[in-house]
Design a protein around this nucleic acid. Structure first.
Lengths: 113, 113
DNA sequence: CAGATAATTTAGTTGTTGCTTAATTAAGGT
DNA sequence: ACCTTAATTAAGCAACAACTAAATTATCTG
C-alpha cells in the first residue's frame, strides 16, 4: 500500500492535485511551493515508487505526469473494507432481535477463557 | 484529511480491517498484535480523532466500532482527483490533433518568460 | 472498601521523515 | 570545450511518530 503512504503527506497530495490538472516539470512544481527543489525531487521520488507518477524526458526537462492507475490498490482496499462493513449491515437485521444477549456473549467468551 | 493519515499506518489499517469484521475491545485488539496495550490505545486515539472509530462503554470494557462514514473525505478526494483526470481524458481527443505543437508551446511558454 | 481487570496517560527512547545546503549528473546552447 | 539550466543525489539536522515501562483512572467484584 505504497500509494496510501505517498498521499498521506499534504505536499505530495498537492503535487498529485496539480498533476491531475496537467503534467508539469519538477521546476514548475517548485514554483507552487515554498520549499527547495531537492525537497520536491524527493517527494516525486516517493510518488514514483508508489506508482502514482510517471516521468518522460523532454529536452533537458523531465515531465512529470499522474498515473491514475496508481490509486488502484487504495481504492481496492476502501472497497474491500467497506464491503465487509456492508455485510455487517446486512446481518444487522437478524442481530437486532437478540442484540443484548449476543453482544454480552461475545464479550464474556474471552473473559471466561 | 485526518482519515488518510490515520490509515497510512499499517497497524492502524489492520485495526480498521479487524473492526470492519466486528467491533472489539482494546484488549481484544491487543491480542492480535505484538505490541503493548498503550501502543494500541494510542493508535485508537488517532483513529478516533480521524473519525474512523467510535467507542461505547460496556461494563468495564470500552467497545471500539468502525465508523464507515469516516472515509467520506478520503473517498471524496479520490473522486475529485480522478474526475479532474477524467476531464483531461475527455479533452485528449482534441489535443491529439495538434499534440506536438501544443505540448511544445506549453513547455516553452515558461522558458521564454 | 480493598482488590482485580480494562484501558488510558505520562515520560522518555528510538527510528523515520522532511527539510536544507552543497555537490553531482545530464542535456542544450554558444 | 565551456557555461547555463534542470534535476537529482548526498550529508546532516530538526521535528515527529511509534514504541515501552511505569503510573493513573475507572469500573466491576468479593
Amino acid at each position: 500500500m505504497q500509494s496510501l503512504l505517498a498521499i498521506a503527506d499534504p505536499k505530495r497530495r498537492r503535487i498529485v492535485e496539480l498533476l491531475a490538472v496537467r503534467e508539469r516539470t519538477a521546476g514548475e512544481l517548485v514554483d507552487e511551493f515554498d520549499i527547495s527543489a531537492p525537497a520536491i525531487s524527493q517527494h516525486l521520488k516517493v510518488l514514483h515508487e508508489a506508482g502514482l507518477v510517471t516521468v518522460r524526458a523532454e529536452g533537458q526537462s523531465r515531465v512529470q505526469a499522474l498515473n491514475p492507475d496508481g490509486f488502484g490498490d487504495l481504492e481496492a482496499w476502501l472497497e474491500k473494507t467497506r464491503s465487509v462493513w456492508s455485510h455487517r449491515l446486512d446481518a444487522l437485521e437478524c442481530e437486532l432481535r437478540a442484540e443484548d444477549e449476543s453482544n454480552e456473549q461475545k464479550r464474556k467468551k474471552r473473559t471466561s477463557s
